[in-house]
Amino acid sequence: MKKLLFYGGLVLIALFGLLVYNYNQQTKQSGAQAYMTNVAPWQPARLRIPNLSLDAPVIGVGSTASGKMDAPTSQAINSPYWTSVFWYELGAAPGQAGNAIIAGHIDRVGGDPAVFWSLNTLAKGAQIFIVTGEGKTLTYVVDGAKSYSANDPGEEAQNDVFGPTNQHHLNLITCSGAWTENGYDQRLVVFTHQENT
């Protein structure tokens, strides 16, 4: 009888631990999914790049305390941050006049590939598609790419990437260059223009 109670208690403890773990995992996942799917009709919801076999959800972000564009990270290997891209909500939205900015990580914690791992292979003329919250598809064409210093990009780079324009542009950003103790030392920017504006 004592053995039966002992083993029954162990099973209950294991079940309770499993329930707590699943609840915590579900809370984390549903919070991220709710944020990604709560998109206004005009906001970008998905980024598709057929040449890279990329189809990623878009998460809206603001700026950090230092005024730079935010790019959330996580210590979890399976975090949605590694497979999602980040739209800079303080700038233009895709489809509007201006420089719309979307960033993505090149790799995840541990060094495995992330969403923009192959962004540097995107050639001039390649098509990029943004799907808005209302299901409208916007088409962009790659004009070229350029790398900038991550620590001191300079005023010209800031203007090229984030500055005002009457044209409809989408600039894609990821890390590049060499890994240092402060992260990668360069940022790769792929410049595009919208077709049929």
Score class of each variant (00 low, 15 high):
Asn22Met: 13
Leu119Phe: 07
Arg187Lys: 08
Gln75Cys: 13
Phe86Asn: 02
Lys136Asn: 12
Gly9Thr: 11
Asp70Ile: 06
Ile130Ala: 07
Glu89Pro: 05
Pro50Gln: 01
Ser74Pro: 06
Gly154Asn: 00
Trp82Ala: 00
Gln96Asp: 12
Ser176Pro: 03
Asp185Gly: 00
Val142Trp: 02
Lys2Tyr: 11
Thr165Gly: 09
Val141Ala: 11
Ala103Val: 06
Thr197Gly: 14
Ala103His: 02
Asn78Leu: 05
Asn78Asp: 13
Gly67His: 01
Val161Cys: 07
Tyr7Gly: 07
Asp112Gly: 15
Trp82Ile: 01
His193Asn: 14
Gln194Ser: 06
Asn151Lys: 09
Gly154Cys: 03
Thr197Ala: 14
Val142Arg: 03
Gly9His: 02
Ala45Val: 05
Gly17Trp: 00
Glu89Ser: 14
His169Asp: 02
Gln43Asn: 11
Lys3Ser: 15
Trp82Gln: 02
Leu5Phe: 14
Ala123Asp: 15
Gln25Glu: 11
Leu90His: 14
Ala34Ile: 10
Leu52Phe: 11
Ala45Glu: 12
Asp70Trp: 10
Thr37Cys: 09
Gln43Ile: 05
Asp152Ile: 09
Asn22Thr: 15
Leu54Thr: 06
Val85Cys: 10
Leu119Ala: 01
Ser149Val: 03
Ala97Gly: 09
Met69Pro: 08
Asp160Val: 04
Gly91Leu: 04
Pro94Met: 06
Gly125Leu: 08
Tyr88Gln: 11
Tyr7Ile: 13
Glu156Tyr: 08
Asn38Leu: 08
Leu4Ala: 14
Asp143Gly: 07
Ala65Thr: 12
Leu19Gln: 15
Ala178Tyr: 00
Lys3Phe: 11
Ala14Glu: 08
Gln75Tyr: 14
Gln96Tyr: 07
Asn166Ser: 12
Asp112Arg: 14
Asn99Glu: 01
Thr37Asn: 12
Leu47Arg: 07
Val190His: 04
Phe129Glu: 13
Pro113Ile: 04
Gln194His: 08
Thr192Trp: 00
Lys2Leu: 14
Val109Met: 09
Ser176Gln: 10
Gly133Thr: 07
Val39Ser: 01
Gly111Ala: 08
Leu188Pro: 00
Leu10Tyr: 10
Thr121Tyr: 09
Leu172Val: 05
Arg187Cys: 03
Ala97Val: 08
Gly95Asp: 05
Phe162Pro: 03
Leu19Cys: 11
Phe129Leu: 12
Thr137Lys: 10
Val58Lys: 06
Gly67Asp: 00
Ile77Ala: 15
